[in-house]
Design a protein around this nucleic acid. Sequence first.
DNA 1: TTGAAAGCGCTAACAT
DNA 2: ATGTTAGCGCTTTCAA
Lengths: 346, 346
Amino acid sequence: MEKRVTIYDIAKAVDVSVATVSRVLSNSSYPVSPELKRKIKAAAKELGYRPNMIGRQLKTNNSMTIGVIIPSISNPFYANVVLGIEEIARRSGYHVLLCNSQHSPELEAEYLQTLFDKQVKGIIISSISEQKDLINEYISKGLIVISIDQTIDNPDVYQIGFDYKKGGYLATKYLIENGHRKIAYVTAPMNRPSRHDIFKGYQEALLESGITLQEGWLQESALDDIEYQGNAYEFRNGRELVRKLLDLDDRPTAILACNDLTALGIINELHFQGVEVPNQISVIGFDNIELSQMVVPSLTTIDHPKLEMGRFACNLLLDMVNSKPIALKEIILQPKLIIRNSTSRN
Amino acid sequence: MEKRVTIYDIAKAVDVSVATVSRVLSNSSYPVSPELKRKIKAAAKELGYRPNMIGRQLKTNNSMTIGVIIPSISNPFYANVVLGIEEIARRSGYHVLLCNSQHSPELEAEYLQTLFDKQVKGIIISSISEQKDLINEYISKGLIVISIDQTIDNPDVYQIGFDYKKGGYLATKYLIENGHRKIAYVTAPMNRPSRHDIFKGYQEALLESGITLQEGWLQESALDDIEYQGNAYEFRNGRELVRKLLDLDDRPTAILACNDLTALGIINELHFQGVEVPNQISVIGFDNIELSQMVVPSLTTIDHPKLEMGRFACNLLLDMVNSKPIALKEIILQPKLIIRNSTSRN
DNA sequence: TTGAAAGCGCTAACAT
DNA sequence: ATGTTAGCGCTTTCAA
């Protein structure tokens, strides 16, 4: 392995100064004679020169890198968000450092630190930490932070949100319009605002139709985020909670789940118990992950524009990095009802 | 936003040289008096000092970053591989730059370049490019490359593979053992060695049992990788190809799919056509993605240890980076049959 | 045990 | 249009 070739090697080869080489090779707008330009480019190619970004970065203080901190990339929801982020980043010449916090506040904090140390221009985070002090501390040090899919209470944090409440409302309303009056909500712990907001929308829709939420309709998992074990957690959650629903004297005819994975668990258990979906019980999911259209029965669900969320977040981040004027400091993406085959008229 | 604090600020504050500060704050083994050590650490904390890794990197030529190039993170298969990679990287203080090639050779090439420019210590790649010259070129420049899940013909590229042929064999054998004699293989284009290897295992199992592969049993998609549109492609592929199977005069009683997503497409279409799985036709998938256990019927499939593949790849890469002795330059992970409910006796 | 100073590869202000 | 040189923040050799 030969030593890496630097602009000094090229300067020597063409017999010009490093400044001229730098001007040509970094596409500076500074004028250089076409003749030299050609020779320098030729020499660079000849010698197999590749710029050392670390050197450039130290000088320009621009790492052209953004950090992304999410709970886990194995969650198809986040995978799509990240895909959207990376797409926009790439188009602007940026790279993405991917960090899975694994639902651990400690890991999240550690990543926040090391990303800052690596001079990322900004980070996009879906924080699972209850404590936002550390984030605020880094913001005060100049770090640009975009929060996705959940609220950080700091005027300097720009947010890309999603109207979960309306999503919960739309889903519940749809069930009611289809003749359902006994509707349950099955959810992972509501310590995450998103899940609680879905509940609020659900409540509102019930209220609006004069339906009183019955004891037992709300099934909330007791487990903590900590106990997440990949996506199997959500699935198992659905399976376990729906059993309690079946035990009720007056069974619901429809179930709203806090996400598609949970809905799959619910359907799975119902199938196992000999209850037909949607004939006997309708099930509606949340998020519209790609797989929700691939299962049988395909999932009626609420679409969450994941790719767009990623794109929005990254565009916003890049605008802030480049100190462009920011139109909106908070974007709330809108839910959309996707009607498929896991729901039917009652 | 205040200017970032550097070791100079601390040196000034404590009235020592930057050398001493550096020694303390970079955890150098170089001796510094406990007294000074304490004072320097206190000042660093007081001033909110955080090291600038770019400066360190330029000096030490160590970016503590690895690059990962995969087709798409939205594919749950790769998501899990990446999760494994990141887990190991983090434990060694490394970060992961995530690059989605989107099945585009051009994008893959671009990423290879920019990762090299960013001084990554090495990359883990699942290359979709037919041309491996560029990779070889960078290897000759000293880049360390680990190839996952497919072969790069270069003695300097270490590989983490998977025995697809045996997987295909195991799956087919299982079907035969369950009384099936008419078994089809439905696959995305076999330009990817993995898919072709599954086919070879399938052939071998048939041959071993004296079954002649009938015209029409092999259903290979005509579409190119280029046309991938997320995972929906695989799914649609399964749906479309299985129709041709149903058109056959002598329908197969079992179908092997090149991956789980394709199997889901197959099952979906069969359901739509009123064919019961597994009662009328058995379907077996490949990969054992998390979702294969969540669907109804749950998928009989071949397990591919995705997380482990990521971990192995990253451990190998780190060993190479640290020029540790490498025991094996090629690791072939083994398939495992997972029996669930999409297959039955014929 | 501490400090001075060179230098990693690059850019950019300044000089010519 | 081209060259000289300082310096980004850090580590490390060498000298004290």
